[in-house]
């Protein structure tokens, strides 16, 4: 276990520091959440009001927004930004690479 011997004052300080960090992180999560709602609204907006915006622009735009939202989810909600996530993220990106190849194939070299 990682619990070391500490005297009472140190324990209290360390504990308070942890609580502060946790609370700070939680604030980040809420901000992330609000941003994600915002991104979702923009995507929906772009589509609903697509008489004013050309289709050629809307499609890549909402895809980009989706990717940004997923990055937020991964790095904030799923703690991928924390220490100890290097290998999981390496494998995740490898999976994304294989996924990308699959999708690329199906939208380019499948006859219509």
């Amino acid at each position: 276990m990682t619990n070391e011997q500490m005297n009472n004052v140190n324990v209290r300080h360390a504990y308070e520091f942890r609580r502060k960090k946790s609370a700070e992180e939680m604030r980040h999560q809420v901000i992330t959440f609000v941003l994600m709602i915002f991104l979702t609204l923009i995507s929906f907006g772009a589509v609903i009001f697509n008489e004013f915006i050309p289709v050629k622009f809307v499609l890549p735009f909402i895809l980009l927004l989706a990717v940004v939202q997923v990055i937020f989810q991964l790095y904030y909600f799923m703690h991928a930004s924390h220490k100890g996530h290097e290998l999981p993220m390496f494998f995740m990106y490898s999976g994304v690479f294989a996924a990308f190849l699959t999708i690329l194939a199906m939208v380019t070299i499948v006859w219509w």
Partner: peptide, 12 residues
């Protein structure tokens, strides 16, 4: 996390 990597390819 590795399982999620595999699921990524599945959903893709």
């Amino acid at each position: 996390w590795l399982f999620l990597g595999g699921e990524t390819v599945l959903f893709a």
